[in-house]
Amino acid sequence: MSRLAATFEQLAKSGRKALIPFITTGDPTPDFTLPLMHEMVKAGVDIIELGVPFSDPMADGPVIQRASERALAHKMSLRKTLAIAAEFRKTDQQTPIVLMGYLNPIEAMGYEGFANAAQRADIDGVLTVDLPPEEGEQCAALLKERGIDTIFLLAPNSTNDRIKKMAAVGSGYLYYVSLKGVTGAGHLDAADVENKLKQIKAITKMPVSVGFGVKDAETAKTIAALGDGVVVGSALISKIENNLDSPEQAKSEIIALLSAMRQAIDK
């Protein structure tokens, strides 16, 4: 069983929901990411989404755009992200890692080359924002052969047909984008999320995590109750951006927010 499947199974058994942080690898500097990953695990996160910086992050709001720019200024890349993930795996064999990013860095490596490299780094899942199932079957198959899950996004306007398609091609979990918009956008509507999750759950048994617009412990709790996991990204990265002259402060604020979310979700 994949690490992602095992994680969700374990959580379901104990009646808990997954807390999934998203951070941009190499933001604000390349050496910031690895220690932060370990500390986030200590703070109780279940899965880590590692953002692969890209020059043209079309689906991201300003906070994650700037995180990408900071990381790229230090020459962060898909290859270096994989290296950091591999390093993490040396001391943590349990926490699943999902790469989240855009297709072109993978195209540049070649699908097969990327699948092999991801396997060597012991990556658990890959979420490529601009690779819908229509175009993504080849890449998903190569990853699947290597035991790596392909995670797809679902949106408020996804039809039943599309949900079925994602459930067929994807594995691990589905990532429900809670609002029409970019990452870090305004306020999500819990009632809308609840309705859509009902629709998705009626079609597939795959776990569904919800993200985009989760800013505080209160929202995390509300959203977690509706699905199987909650993803938080821009709210964490804002801590980095607000403390560029003090990475240690950024780290402790990130850990504090995640701990508060963990507590709120579990209560």
């Binding site: 079309m58 689906a59 601009d130 819908p132 229509e134 949106a155 996804s158 984008v177």
Partner: peptide
């Protein structure tokens, strides 16, 4: 029909843009 010119073209967009 899928918008491919040989290996080129296609629909490489985030899910929210697929329906539109």
């Amino acid at each position: 029909v899928k918008g491919h010119f040989g290996p080129y073209g296609g629909m490489f967009v985030a899910e929210t843009l697929m329906p539109p």
